[in-house]
Structure formats: C-alpha cells, structure tokens
Design a protein around this nucleic acid. Structure first.
Length: 181
DNA sequence: AGCACA
C-alpha cells in the first residue's frame, strides 16, 4: 500500500482521486428514479378526471358553488400529492432493499480526476488488493482520464471505495496535506 | 464535475 504514495495520489501535483459508485445504464434496470415519472403521469390523469367530474357535476354553474368546489379541489389535490410522495418513497425503498439483496445491476466504481502519472496497471494493482475486484477499464477522453472498476457486488464496490479513500487519506496525511473528497 | 463497455 506504500506504493500508493506518489502513484495514485501524487502529493507533488496535489492531484486527488475521486471515487464514486458508477452510474449504470444497464438494460435490466434502466431507471432508478423512474418512480417519479410514473407518479407524475398518475397525477396528470387524476387532474383530468377531476376536471371532467367538476364540469359534469356543476351543470347549472353557480358562482358560489364554483368557488366552494375549487377550494375543495385544492385540498384533495394537496392530499393526493402527499400520498404520491409517500408511495414514491415506498417504491424507492423497496427497490433499495432489492439492491441490497445482492441482485446488483451495476457494481462498478467510477474513478475520476486521476493523476496523469498513474497507469492502468497501477490502479489495477491497487484494486486487486480489494475484495471482489474483477475488471478495470480506463478511458482517456478530452484530457479527463477516468476509470471503471467492476466488482463482484455492490457491497464489495463500496467497501473498495472506502478502502481507497482511506488509503488516500493516509497518503495525504503522510505528505502533510489535506484531502478533499 | 467529468460515467464506458457489455
């Protein structure tokens, strides 16, 4: 782990490594936040239904009852919005628990802001010390080198991320620097 | 902040 010093994290240039869980465009689970889209559609449909109802029900269109109806409508809309928010929460949390069950859609670490000095082999060497590390792919696009590290599972990926950040912190302390992550 | 390949 001492080889880390000056390779991945370079105190000379002050280059810091950014590590996060990668965004995945896996076809199996395309949208993590798709719940909101569905709920938006639902809300629209409900509003339309409400308009139809109030139009039919009013018939003779009295001014006083119209005001009364509109205030009632506002109340029910507010309540439904709250309900929607709650169901969105439920959907998200249920999906999250699915993720933690190990059905991992994408257990990849996204590594950015790499030092230009560190090679793919260097990172690979680093990552191979982490549990569940599988494959590393590097990409050098428009002067922003980034790396994708595949792990066997999300838990392994997060663990590796924590480990790397820890090592970075250690290296920074060693060099008497402050690290921002 | 910058997220590809299967």
């Amino acid at each position: 782990m001492t080889e880390l010093n000056g390779v991945i994290f370079d105190p000379e240039t002050g280059a810091t490594l950014h590590i996060e869980l990668a965004r995945s465009n896996s076809r199996r689970r395309p949208r993590v936040d798709g719940a909101y889209d569905i709920i938006d559609k639902r809300a629209k449909v409900r509003n339309d239904e409400q308009n139809i109802w109030s139009n039919n029900g009013n018939g003779g269109s009295d001014a006083d009852t119209e005001i009364e109806n509109s205030s009632k409508k506002g109340a029910t809309q507010r309540k439904r919005k709250a309900d929607d928010a709650r169901s969105a929460q439920n959907a998200l949390s249920s999906r999250k628990s699915k993720l933690q069950d190990g059905i991992s859609p994408c257990s990849t670490l996204f590594i950015a802001n790499l030092s230009p000095l560190c090679s793919e082999e260097d990172i690979k060497k680093m990552l191979s010390e982490c549990r569940g590390f599988e494959v590393l792919k590097m990409q050098n696009k428009s002067g922003k080198p980034v790396a994708f590290a595949n792990f066997s599972g999300i838990e392994e990926a997060t663990e590796a991320k924590e480990k790397l950040l820890g090592s970075l912190q250690a290296a920074a302390d060693d060099a008497g620097l402050h690290l921002e992550v």
